[in-house]
Design a protein around this nucleic acid. Structure first.
Length: 572
RNA sequence: CGGGGCGUGGCUCAGCUUGGUAGAGCGCACGGUUCGGGACCGUGAGGCCGGUGGUUCGAAUCCACUCGCCCCGACCA
């Protein structure tokens, strides 16, 4: 492609509305432009990257035995009503009416649609199993789109759905997809980790996320420094935390009420009483499923994990109660809440069990108890794993490992769905005995457009983007120093033709610009290999070959240059 | 939805407090000098200052409402 014939609107300055580096660079380098909140134009360079990402997905999905198909973006409300998600999904689901006033929505995901397809097309166990996938634009009216392509409302996703006669076969496909995803993300040249994940709104019982490691990632993950355990903190089991309240007084003196005027947070009270946060018990009042209230206890140095709380309580929704509700329930503001004498059902994290010499609120204004002994002074209705795992925790899977914390960008997720959708929508088959049975299902997503952002987050420097070769918009940037110089022009034109003939993807900067401008633009858009054609080099019969990533530069002979370049690419 | 911030040529911003009819840098066009890491000189085009309503002799500037965008939080690929 000749630069002069394509549209690459580069910018010298960072756009004012971008925060993270991938957003800034993708806009500056002329890949994307925001047209509305969370909705972007993809310029030619961006589309090339997207096509590369997609084609690797296709190759690997096809290799894994999946079949590509294409489902509609608009789907009728009936299917969503049947699965129950028309009510459950909320405002994120964009709904509209057609001219006949029939309800529709834009598909945020396609379990209903594909299940409907399968129930009408498949009758017998002989037709199972299979895995259907598509690559398509999705729309979710996100509460808070942000960070450019990282969290758009409109985004491109690969979604796959598999159908099976039994759990074992569905598990086999889950593992098949897990391995396929590892191959895909490895081919992208990204540093990633598969982590155990919560299943969230999609439902199901087993799930892994594929997280591209990046500081700007929205997800917190932990991984073991010794074994291969890794999990999203939402899901990570919290076990054997740092030694903390263990060395507490054995003799368990009397409960002591102390005055703590105006001190409300653990940090404030800890500072005031000169006691470490791990000796505290935090009491948090939650409203569950919009009617009942429950008090959750975690140690002062821990964070509560609401997903775990929800699971432990077996409820659909938990939300921190507001101050007025707390005052009504407990007769005190949240800063002075404690489990002793609290007339609320309480549930406590394991780390609170058997605590001694602890500090809690006294359920009266400006007062706390010290020397609290859990076994002597209060009894929660249950103990459970309620806290966020954190760096330094003991690994829940191996003996000596410790957890490390990372940030990640979730670029893929695999789910074992079970019969959730097949039962709701009646996707059944007849088994060998002629009995009707619901199918077992799995689903598997990859965020295609999000991957563009993730790749940039992980591959850039002060000068711009550094695309991994496998997803770069072009493999080679051919840069003549002065395209008006006759010798340069002839050599560059010839090389351009020869490279293309060999199937090398070349961006040819044939613009009448000063060299500095071309070098800067070239670094910005991040083509992996740059070939510079200049009068000085030509005089010696040479060209300069330079890798964008490490700046490594070699001179190569003009004669046979196309072949030499092809060879360097093949080795990369 | 709650909290905070911002809307002024294509881009990044100044001007607003203390109303007097719009500026800079970059970019763009043309001419000239340049030409291996975002050149220089000259000339020029381009803005109903997000919108509506108000206050005023007069509003980018003050007031009200409204729309859009960004950040933080509650949600999620």
């Amino acid at each position: 492609m000749r630069w002069s014939k394509t549209l690459i609107p580069t910018l010298k300055e960072d756009p004012a509305d971008a925060e993270v580096v991938s957003h800034k660079l993708l806009v500056r380098a002329g890949f994307i432009r925001q047209i509305s909140r969370g909705i972007y134009d993809y310029f030619p360079l961006a589309l090339k990257v997207i096509r590369k990402i997609e084609s690797i997905v296709r190759e690997e999905m096809d290799r894994a035995g999946a079949q590509e198909l294409l489902l509609p973006i608009a789907s009728p409300a009936e299917l969503w009503q049947e699965s129950g998600r028309w009510e459950v999904y909320g405002k994120e689901l964009v709904r509209f009416k057609d001219r006949h006033a029939r309800d529709f929505c834009l598909g945020p995901t396609h379990e209903e649609i594909v299940t409907d397809l399968v129930r009408s097309a498949v009758r017998s166990y002989r037709e199972l199993p299979f895995n259907l996938y598509q690559i398509q634009t999705k729309f979710r009216d996100e509460v808070r789109p942000r960070f450019g392509l990282m969290r758009g409302r409109e985004f491109i996703m690969k979604d796959a759905y598999s159908f099976h006669t039994d759990m074992q076969d569905c598990r086999r496909e889950y593992d098949n997809m897990f391995e396929t995803y590892k191959r895909i993300f490895t081919r992208y040249g990204l540093q990633y980790r598969p982590v155990e994940a919560d299943t969230g709104a999609i439902g199901g019982s087993l799930s892994h996320e594929f997280q591209v490691l990046a500081e700007s990632g929205e997800d917190a993950i932990v991984s073991c420094n010794l074994c291969d355990y890794a999990a999203n903190v939402e899901k990570a089991e919290a076990k054997g935390s740092r030694p903390a309240a263990r060395d507490l007084t054995e003799e368990s003196p009397q409960l002591v009420k102390v005055s703590t005027p105006g001190k409300r947070s653990v940090a404030e009270v800890a500072e005031y009483l000169k006691l470490p946060p791990e000796k505290f018990v935090k009491t948090l009042v939650y409203r569950i499923d919009n009617n009942d209230f429950v008090a959750a206890l975690v140690r002062g140095d821990h964070e509560i994990n609401e997903v775990k709380l929800q699971t432990a309580l077996g409820c659909r929704e938990v939300a921190l109660a507001d101050e007025a509700a707390v005052a009504a329930m407990a007769g005190v503001t949240p800063g002075y809440l404690g489990p002793i004498g609290l007339s609320l059902r309480t549930i406590a994290d394991f780390s609170v069990q058997s605590m001694r010499g602890a500090v809690t609120g006294a359920n009266e204004a400006n007062a706390h108890y010290t020397e609290v002994d859990q076994e002597r002074d209060f009894t929660p209705s249950a103990f459970a794993d309620l806290r966020m795992a954190a760096a330094g925790d003991h690994c829940p899977r191996c003996d000596h490992g410790l957890l490390e914390a990372h940030r990640g960008i979730e670029v893929g997720q695999v789910f074992y769905l079970g019969k959730k959708y097949s039962e709701a929508l009646g996707a059944t088959y007849l088994d060998a005995e002629g009995r009707e049975r619901p199918m077992e299902m799995g689903c598997y997503g990859i965020g295609i457009s999000r991957l563009v952002a993730a790749a940039v987050e992980q591959n850039h420097d002060a000068n711009g983007i550094i695309w991994p070769l496998s997803i770069a918009p072009f493999q080679v940037l051919l840069l003549p120093i002065n395209y008006n110089d006759k010798a340069t022009r002839e050599a560059a034109d010839r090389l351009y033709d020869e490279l293309r003939r060999r199937g090398v993807e070349v961006l040819f900067d044939d613009r009448d610009e000063r060299p500095g401008v071309k070098f800067k633009d070239g670094d910005l858009i991040g083509i992996p290999l740059r070939i510079t054609v200049g009068a000085k080099g030509l005089a010696k019969g040479c060209l300069e070959l330079r890798w964008r990533r490490d700046g490594k530069t070699v001179e190569i002979a003009l004669a046979g240059a196309a072949q030499t370049i092809h060879g360097h690419l093949a080795q990369a």
